[in-house]
């Protein structure tokens, strides 16, 4: 656990900018590999509701529903290398990439961070946190280059549910679908095809 001190508090409240001259090869690779520069995209899609419409999570939501969601969303900006969240810590919001590259990483047994994937507009991540399951995150998310995100907190969804239960229900079912899809993909990558059948056959014998 981190020692509490004035210096620690200062770091939390007034985080210093990293040296812009320092080479960050992962960020450079991500910028080179993925899409347009953040400034260009933010100019093109200035409207938050219109951006939400691009996200697969809210693909067939009406204009009115997107407007309601936009009123509950938070726009956040991150500097290169800044953590959006860290592994092992609880979460309270789902994030949508509006511009820039977000790298999802996970610590290996040696404690070194291994990049898993890079996300760009209009990807969503950390859906579990918005559903509200009490869990510690098993990955970290780091900004690669300047990143602009839209966050939708669990309290925001709760508040939405009190005012517009049908809309909140729609969002929650979408989140559940996404989580099921992610689980399926994870299982497919972890288990060989026909593996489950083999084990069933073994059990029958």
């Amino acid at each position: 656990m981190r020692q509490f001190s004035i210096q620690g508090l200062r770091e939390i409240l007034l985080p210093r900018a990293k040296d812009p001259a320092s080479p960050d090869r992962t960020a450079a690779r991500a910028r080179a590999a993925f899409g347009p520069l953040p400034l260009m995209t933010s100019r093109k899609h200035s409207d938050l509701a219109a951006f939400l419409g691009e996200v697969s999570l809210f693909a067939d939501f009406s204009h009115w529903e997107l407007g309601r969601l936009a009123r509950n969303a938070h726009e956040r900006t991150y500097r290169d290398g800044e953590y959006i969240y860290e592994e092992g810590r609880p979460g309270a919001a789902l994030f949508l990439v509006r511009s820039g590259i977000v790298e999802i990483t996970r610590r290996d047994p040696k404690g070194e961070e291994v990049p898993i994937l890079a996300l760009e507009r209009p990807a969503s991540f950390s859906e579990q946190a918005a559903i509200g399951t009490d869990f510690a995150r098993w990955t970290s998310a780091v900004a690669r280059g300047p990143v602009s995100l839209v966050a939708l907190g669990k309290p925001d969804l709760d508040s939405l549910g009190r005012r517009f239960p049908l809309l909140a229900n729609k969002v929650l079912s979408r989140l559940a679908q996404i989580l099921v899809l992610r689980l399926e993909v994870l299982l497919e990558t972890q288990l060989p095809p026909g593996g489950a059948q083999t084990s069933n056959d073994d059990a029958a014998k």
């Binding site: 409240l13 938070h74 956040r76 907190g153 508040s159």
Partner: peptide, 24 residues
């Protein structure tokens, strides 16, 4: 909600999610 969002905008990124939970 606008006032709350305005307040949260001023919160540093590291404190964003804890603040969201505390405000709730």
């Amino acid at each position: 909600s606008l006032i709350k969002r305005g307040f949260l905008r001023a919160v540093p990124n590291r404190l964003f999610e804890p603040t969201l939970a505390v405000l709730a």
